[in-house]
Design a binder for these strands. Structure first.
Lengths: 331, 331
DNA sequence: TAAAATAATGAAAAGGTTTTCAGAAATCGT
DNA sequence: ACGATTTCTGAAAACCTTTTCATTATTTTA
């Protein structure tokens, strides 16, 4: 039923090989033949069978991406950028969202192995050993992109979470004797872990005790930010500043303050992380660490392409720029 | 280099066919052989070659989705739901974002044809004739999901944009003699067109003149909402209500009002569309037409699976529920 | 117990490409 | 004008599965 190269060949009166050559822009076919074949391809509305091609060439033109959280605008910006870059090189993105479930992640890695993806991008919240091992065994060119990796044989692209958190800490210590933190899930997020590290570094540097009651665990949602703000403000009567590990939680925290007539930034300063578009359009506008999803995506793809081409990649851990942007939610 | 079924077969001391049978859970292989083969598969870490399988079976286990706007949380919710449902049936999602470019869309349809996707979901902003024709020619089971389609041989799943806009109109006419609209791009969005139709219906029903100056064209971004609010408020001194065709634009409009000390809802009521999570966390909270991305995704997949299984689908145009939710931004 | 049915296995074809190898036709150099 | 290149084309193998058909071994039936 479906039209194959064979049909094209016989209709055009040439051999299979010739048709294939035309399709792949081989130089060794005469101009007239090329035209003739192309015309028949159009006439028959012939479509390449990518499975057959992939089988033969061992190239799938597929890049697998495993991520956590399609409700995360920053991640989606990065994904969009990845997709755009990929398409330019004729790669299609095959995306699997794990929702943070390890089992899902492993399942996806397996599926992607079977699909023989040419490259793999891991943007999961956490990098479990099982995941890393499964990826390593696969021998697929892979970029990790939620945080730093200490394994020298693996490549990561990420914002410098530690440094960024240190920047925020420095800024907030200027405003107040201490500040509270709305972090991500304790065991499930590299980014959260790293940002926490940055905070700890600064608390230590300034010799200030980082008490447990300064810290609340959220899960990167608006709602968890709202609830965390309530807890933190109740437990710390003189609290003057909160650092939330993403913008959604920061916005949730702001909402809690507004609902409870707590003045921002007069009574409390709030800083987020990511710099999503919405952070500019809430009132008060949100102070936040801006990182560009576009930057992340570009850097990921650039390096992945190098990796796939077996070129040397200069650095194990690549950082994208970040910038603390002060807006109305902090003073 | 790569391990194939042949390797498994010879190591396990059985034939190729037997290995294949074990992998595909055929009943006609003895218990012992099954165990033996499975063990060797584990030992060798054998992975199926999906290209070969797809070539042979003509089933790719791939579902193509073409969408516009990964920065649209509602769309992403739907996509997430699609993906979850798909995975349960062992389908992988291959997503292409067109950014509203027709050329991109056609390109993706072509790529997906070549990849021999088993099903196709079109969530682009607009359904151009070219796109529709290309899809039709492909003979791939397809669901359209941004708006209603009058072609009886195609299936669409969408919120009832017309009815929803009528609901909002009725509500706003209760508040004020007229209201302004922030719509989507003129030619590029079915949803916008349909919602506009709903508005027009009600203006007509109540015999009110829908003046051009009541309408501003946005592009579904925060920023365009902000700018549109400025234009509308400047051109209509006694304006009491604005209907924005999505939540982002509504939030942008709110921001403009707050920036300019225009009281919401006392001086102006604002209603959005979609009911994204953020609409609950801005201040004032946003009145909006809620539709569930989850509903949309489920309904799409359910019908797509039926379509792919050649089952009859009862309805050409399937509507998912919507609900006008009144919050603080309107009275 | 012999014939018939069932269960388990293997050999081989088919699916649609790409690519190597060989060969024919055309062009070149001298 | 002849052999040597160069240009173009075709035949056939290979990629890795699934599946049909045939075959052997086992169990059932009368």
């Amino acid at each position: 039923m479906t039209i194959t190269m064979k049909d094209v060949a016989s209709k055009a009166g040439v051999s299979l090989s010739t048709v294939s050559r035309v399709i792949n822009n081989s130089t060794l076919v005469s101009k007239e033949t090329t035209i003739k074949v192309k015309k028949t391809i159009d006439q028959l509305d012939y479509q390449i069978n990518d499975s057959a091609r992939a089988l033969r060439t061992n190239i799938s033109n597929l890049i697998g991406v495993i991520g956590a959280g399609m409700d995360n605008p920053f991640l989606m910006n990065a994904l969009k950028s990845i997709e755009t870059k990929a398409l330019k090189k004729n790669y299609n993105i095959i995306y699997g969202d794990s929702d943070g479930e390890l089992e899902q992640e492993l399942y996806y890695v397996n599926m992607f192995k079977q699909k023989k993806v040419d490259g793999l991008i891991i943007m999961t919240a956490n990098f479990s050993d099982e995941l890393i091992n499964s990826v390593k065994r696969s021998n697929i060119s892979t970029i990790f992109a939620s945080g730093y990796l200490d394994q020298t044989d693996l490549l990561s692209v990420t914002v410098n979470n530690i440094k960024a958190a240190e920047d925020v800490s420095d800024y907030l210590f200027d405003l107040s004797d201490y500040f509270a933190i709305i972090r991500g899930p304790y065991n499930d997020s590299v980014a959260s872990k790293e940002r926490m590290q940055g905070v700890k570094n600064k608390y230590k540097e300034y010799n200030i005790d980082l008490k447990d009651k300064y810290i609340s665990e959220g899960n990167f949602t608006f709602e968890s930010g709202y609830k965390s703000a309530e807890i933190l403000l109740n437990n710390n009567k003189d609290l003057k500043a909160i650092f939330a590990f993403n913008d959604q939680m920061a916005i949730g925290a702001i909402k809690y303050c507004l609902d409870n007539k707590i003045k921002i930034p007069e009574e409390i300063s709030i800083v987020g992380f990511d710099g999503i578009e919405a952070s500019k359009y809430i009132k008060p506008t949100l102070s936040t660490v801006f990182q560009s999803g576009n930057d992340l995506g570009s850097e990921i793809m650039e390096n992945l392409l190098k990796l796939m081409a077996d070129e040397n990649v200069e650095n194990d851990n690549i950082f994208i720029p970040h910038k603390l942007i002060i807006r109305e939610s902090s003073i």
